[in-house]
Simulated assay, not measured.
Amino acid sequence: MRSTTSRAARAALATTSAAALALVLASCGATNETDGSTGTDTGTGTGTADGDLADTLVGAGASSMQAAMQAWAVNFQTESGTTVNYDPVGSGSGRTQFLSGGVSFAGSDAYLTDEELTQAESRCVDGAVDLPVYVSPIAIAYNLPGVEDLQLSPAALAGIMAQEITTWDDPAIAETNEGVELPSTTITPVNRSDDSGTTENFTEYLDAVAPDAWTYGVVETWPIAGGEAAQGTSGVVQAITNGEGTIGYADASQVGDLSVAQVGVGGEFVGPTPEAAAAILDNSERVEGRPEGDLAIELARDTTASGTYPIVLISYMVACKGYEDQTEADTVAAFIEYVASEDGQQAAAEQAGSAPISDTLREDIGTSLELVRGS
């Protein structure tokens, strides 16, 4: 279990140019605001018919959401005229920038801690909320020529990442890969070098399913030296690609042509498909004791349910409940409303391979957005 005190248009636009994507993902930018307010429609689209939005909306945070954010930002700009600038600096940095007032919203692979919720009381009119809008499997990607299919038990995966299992022909790996010719190649585990919600989600899984092998707890900062560290999701993928015998964890949408392992769940081995990632939400509960409107989810990492992939991340949009400037509040709410809509979720699924959220969760987000607007 994670400790809370540690630390619009329609589906993706196929004709969008690279220049447009670069524009909307540029980091930094001043908000050029206009007067007005948005509608409160919680279905599809942006709900902007009743008023004007800010010309620019600035956010920062999780790099895991970058591919989805590309589609969301382009589509939202097409529908509303608002340019969304999102800097994928990582979850920790995004939350820090949000809490200091540097950006209007944060993208985060981990919900706000109790300490951060307290900080948000000063940053926002009435505190902040975590709204889960992006559900994606964390793939266990590896580079081992000649081995295209790999099955790893939770204990074996934990042992590899803890650097206790050091060669690919180790018996702990071989016993779940009968008939596969495993080389004696040295294993090089690759981890994030920056504070990362992806790391927190991955170590939360390891801590839940293999605490005897993974003794480092749930952390945002990788606790072991000796492997290879890389900045951001793209850095981890590049490091695995460049080194034979490497293995690491990264958002499944960004692993490209790398081989991906299946992990043991109950009596079967499951790969990181969107359907398997979405299944874990059916076995998970909301975190207790959170502020009004906050929708943080406690994932059941140790599930044994068939067809469920438990190494997933839920990325949250972190927003204020009320902003000093009403146009900023309306623009943040309108953007998140589009992101959570059926169209926004379909755009993310097509662009990033994520699992669309349920109708029930979408309705709950709509209710929380009234608080974001200050209603």
Rank of each mutant, 00 (worst) to 15 (best):
G39A: 05
D41H: 12
T42I: 12
T42V: 10
T44L: 01
G45V: 10
T46D: 08
T46I: 10
T48M: 07
A49T: 15
D50V: 10
D52H: 09
L53P: 07
A54E: 04
A54N: 13
A54Q: 04
A54H: 09
D55W: 00
D55M: 05
T56G: 05
T56R: 13
L57A: 03
L57R: 03
V58G: 01
V58R: 15
G59K: 03
G59T: 02
A60L: 08
A60V: 05
G61N: 04
G61F: 00
S64P: 06
M65Q: 12
Q66I: 09
A68Q: 06
Q70S: 15
A71E: 12
A71Q: 02
W72F: 09
V74A: 13
V74P: 10
V74C: 11
N75H: 02
Q77D: 07
Q77R: 14
E79D: 14
S80T: 15
T83E: 12
V84D: 01
N85H: 14
P88E: 05
G90Q: 09
G90M: 03
S91Y: 06
S91Q: 08
G92M: 06
S93Y: 07
R95Y: 03
R95A: 05
T96L: 11
F98N: 08
F98E: 07
S100V: 01
S100T: 12
G101M: 07
G102F: 01
F105R: 04
A106E: 03
A106F: 06
G107S: 11
G107N: 11
S108V: 05
S108E: 09
D109N: 15
D109P: 00
D109Y: 09
A110K: 13
A110R: 15
L112D: 12
D114I: 13
D114L: 05
D114Q: 14
E115V: 14
T118L: 06
Q119E: 15
Q119R: 13
A120W: 01
E121V: 04
E121T: 09
S122L: 09
R123S: 11
V125K: 15
V125E: 12
D126K: 13
D126M: 07
G127Y: 06
D130N: 15
P132R: 00
V133A: 12
V133P: 02
V133H: 03
Y134E: 11
